[in-house]
């Protein structure tokens, strides 16, 4: 055996390097396998939805659809899924566009200790999260009606109120760890307030802002009860369609399509947010 061994091209150290490289590669694949496993775990619940979305017939005991097709997509389209998707996007983005800056300002003030009884204020801010939304909505509907606020305005206002605790909470945490020394450094380097805001402050809190904006978007995107009751049915959003469709048995392909439509935009947004913030910190 030993006689057959060809001389190692790099000798002993070469072999060690080779082994290290193999181990590194194994570790890399191990990590990848882990990622794949976790992703699979997260995706498993979506598998039936995906199958149903392209199932024209899937009788009870069968393991897979017996007739494939796009009937669910046609029906969902006929029920107004696409305009509803657009309305939900607009609603989510509007809520996000208002609640994120509000949360940033409130969070900054709280983190800087500029608010008297800051801890109590924080606790109160989170209170709406703890109260059943249905009860709150019924009450707020009456208030909005008494004040004579138009439905859509009241809808956005209430959703913003619902989203602000989340954005404030995230931004408060972000500003608690925020080093104002960066802004001072920037100023002595000659940056005026506009440059400080655009080139230093916003980039530094951007990951938190993105997370806050995403959550605020979700509040508008996923709301059912406020959109219906306070929005007075003026905005037929995707959750309204989904809720109506899911309240019956037998609509499974349509429900699956609507559920997919309701899931994909947030997932895309989340991916974008994650990729962007990773690109910023790595490289």
């Amino acid at each position: 055996m030993t006689a057959l061994v060809t001389p190692a091209p790099h000798g002993r150290s070469g072999r060690r390097v080779l082994r290290a490289r193999v181990e590194a590669r194994a570790a890399k694949w191990g990590r990848r396998a882990g990622t794949v496993a976790v992703t699979a775990l997260l995706l498993v619940p979506f598998l039936p939805i995906l199958l149903w979305a392209f199932a024209d017939r899937w009788p009870y005991p069968e393991l897979a659809p017996t007739v494939w097709g796009v009937g669910g997509w046609l029906t969902a389209t006929a029920q107004g899924a696409w305009p509803a998707l657009t309305r939900s996007l607009l609603l989510g983005l509007t809520v996000s566009a208002i609640a994120t800056p509000l949360g940033a300002m409130a969070g900054r003030a709280l983190a800087r200790g500029r608010v008297p009884y800051g801890k109590m204020v924080t606790a109160l801010l989170l209170a709406p999260v703890a109260v059943p939304p249905f009860a709150v909505t019924m009450g707020l509907t009456t208030v909005a009606l008494r004040l004579g606020v138009p439905g859509v305005v009241a809808l956005v206002a209430v959703l913003v109120v619902a989203a602000v605790p989340y954005t404030t909470y995230i931004m408060r945490a972000a500003y608690a760890g925020y080093d104002e020394g960066f802004e001072e450094t920037a100023r002595t380097l000659g940056a005026g307030s506009r440059h400080v805001l655009l080139r230093v402050h916003l980039p530094l809190v951007a990951p938190a802002l993105a997370a806050a904006a995403f959550l605020a978007f979700l509040v508008g995107w996923s709301d059912y009860v406020v959109t219906l009751l306070i929005g007075a049915g003026r905005i037929v959003s995707l959750p309204l369609l989904l809720g109506a469709s899911a309240s019956a048995s037998g609509n499974d392909p349509t429900i699956a399509v609507l559920a997919l439509l309701a899931t994909i935009p947030p997932v895309l947004l989340l991916t974008a947010v994650t990729v962007l913030s990773r690109r910023r910190t790595q490289r």
Partner: peptide, 27 residues
């Protein structure tokens, strides 16, 4: 501060984490 031409370097270097080295110097 931004008009004084007095630059302050702290014990913590406070390089802007979102900019690469060259862009920090170019800031």
């Amino acid at each position: 501060p931004e008009l004084r031409h007095t630059v302050l370097v702290f014990q913590s270097p406070r390089l802007f984490p979102h900019l690469n080295v060259l862009d920090n110097v170019a800031f």
